[in-house]
């Protein structure tokens, strides 16, 4: 079973009477354990596609499946539930909850899911260990570097063991050394736990390290290369 499947997915933004076609009949299939990047120039529709797959946006037409669930006609509450239970998110920046420590942030999604405390703690420390963040578990986000914050964001995204992790330019605010480290760690999680990752990025460092690059141009897939 595919983790993600889109069929003829089209998204047209309309604001103030202006219609912007962002995605045109995109069909994409992501298998479990894949480590895939969506590439393409600015404005090509990468973020739009990630948001649609993550149930943060509704498509204009076409279908989106997450595992066995067709999500395009779910109501907002059901979409929230889907995101909570099946999708992990890493955003570009500013995405930790500033009043929670690294560990609490990591436990956040599991807490919303209602996992018992000891299990949450164990899972969180496990992931933070893998991400070499165990020494910083009790720090507040504002006492962490950008790279460390992004690692906590990754920890939060994967700790609840979602079917899929969506990462929109996770390295955009990091220098190349930290990008390198973060990519290495995500790769490790992908290999150790079999977590499926889907990135949107222009970062050559990411593109180098992924197994598959799907290139978008003006809202259409222009190439799909598996290494």
């Amino acid at each position: 079973m595919s983790v993600v499947q889109t069929k003829d997915l089209t998204k047209i933004y309309s604001s103030n009477g202006i219609e912007t076609p962002a995605l045109k009949e995109v069909s994409l299939d992501v298998q479990p354990g894949e480590f895939t990047a969506l590439a393409g120039p600015s404005g090509s529709g990468k973020s739009t596609l990630l948001h649609l797959i993550g149930g943060l946006l509704l498509p204009t037409s076409g279908e989106i499946w997450i595992e066995d669930q067709k999500i395009n006609d779910l109501n907002p509450d059901k979409l929230a539930e889907l995101r909570l239970n099946r999708v992990g998110f890493v955003f570009q920046a500013y995405n930790l909850i500033p009043v929670l420590t690294a560990r609490e942030n990591t436990e956040f999604v599991m807490e919303l899911q209602g996992l018992p405390e000891n299990e949450r703690k164990k899972q969180a420390m496990d992931v933070l260990n893998t991400l070499e963040m165990n020494d910083y578990a009790d720090r507040m986000p504002n006492k962490l570097s950008g790279g460390q914050q992004q690692r906590v964001a990754v920890a939060r995204a994967v700790a609840a063991q979602p079917a899929l992790v969506l990462a929109d330019e996770p390295t955009a605010n990091l220098d190349s050394k930290n990008s390198e480290i973060l990519m290495g760690l995500m790769r490790k999680l992908n290999q150790d736990r079999g977590t499926t990752f889907l990135f949107a990025t222009h970062d050559p460092q990411i593109l180098e390290r992924v197994d598959r690059v799907v290139e978008l141009h003006d809202g259409e897939i222009s190439s799909d290369i598996k290494k």
């Binding site: 929230a80 239970n85 999708v87 998110f89 500013y94 500033p98 999604v109 919303l112």
Partner: peptide, 16 residues
């Protein structure tokens, strides 16, 4: 606003 956006994106329900 931003962090509430993140929290909602992560799948927190509106009632929550």
């Amino acid at each position: 606003t931003r962090e509430l956006g993140v929290v909602l994106a992560l799948g927190s329900s509106r009632n929550r």
